[in-house]
Amino acid sequence: MTQSSRDRTPAGDGPVVSPRDTETAERLLSLGRLTVEGRLVQASNATLYCSIEWEGLTAACVYKPVAGERPLWDFPDGTLAEREVAAYAVSETMGLRVVPPTVHRDGPYGPGMVQLWVEPDPEVDLVALSRSEDEAIRRMAVFDAVVNNADRKIGHLLPVSDGHVYGCDHGVCFSAEYKLRTVLWQWRGQRLTTEAVEALRRVDKALRNGPLRETLLRLLTAEEVEATVRRVELMLKHKIHPFPPEDWPAIPWPPM
């Protein structure tokens, strides 16, 4: 069974869990019964659209089993699911909440990443949004710089009706080498906002002495965690958005 990326609604008759209710969403994603409804055929790795139910709560979610990950030349095999969970942990610590609730758990096809489905507002022009100076997009650009996102495409932006923007597909983040590749370069070299600096200070503290460090060390290599610390240090030191890398393609292809 296959489905397009725009024709899905949550299955089930129970109350639907909001991505803003992270505590409830994490419990549902961790403990709920997963039922595979279809497959996102445009994804390069096995990406399954599922319904999930637990104690009367219901939601739609994405399940990416490790067994369905395609090997990459520049990332260790079988690590993409952990990187998605790490990205969620960083987003929450920063207080930006740009990644939908995400957990690592066992599923019908083995262990993998399970993320709450966020239905984007169909009225939003994603290309125009990605080129805009919307503050929600600027938060995403700051987050991507912290996690060293090597694949921020336009189609990975999930704007919702209240103006908030979520992002998905963070499996190729946290490389120890600088590999930031994104469609969101409009602030390169510009001063960071006060909000961004405060978010960076939160994540800096948590990376040094807080539970985030322990969480990331379970999901990433020690070298990758230390590289994350250094990226945050540099952003706090210079207080500007980073510039594109000189030895790495700056924009993903295709950009959508």
Rank of each mutant, 00 (worst) to 15 (best):
T193A: 15
D151V: 01
R83L: 08
E198S: 09
T194D: 15
L219Y: 04
L192V: 00
D144N: 10
K239I: 01
P211I: 02
T182Q: 11
S4P: 05
R131S: 06
F143K: 12
R201H: 13
T22D: 12
L40F: 14
A250R: 09
T47N: 15
V90P: 02
D144R: 07
L48H: 04
V66A: 12
L158S: 11
Y178N: 05
G38Q: 07
R33G: 12
P159H: 12
P242C: 10
D7R: 14
A128G: 04
I154N: 05
R39D: 11
S4N: 10
L34P: 01
V232G: 12
E246K: 08
M94R: 05
E53C: 06
T58N: 13
S161C: 08
W187T: 00
V165E: 15
F75Q: 06
R8K: 14
V146N: 05
D74V: 00
A128M: 03
P242M: 14
E224S: 13
E226Y: 11
H104W: 12
M94P: 01
E55P: 03
P159I: 01
E177C: 06
R83T: 01
Y49A: 05
R213I: 10
S5C: 13
I240W: 13
R27I: 04
V203G: 10
L126S: 00
R181G: 03
P10S: 05
Y109L: 13
S161E: 15
G14V: 04
P249I: 09
N148Y: 11
E177L: 06
R139A: 07
V127D: 01
I52L: 06
P76K: 07
S44E: 08
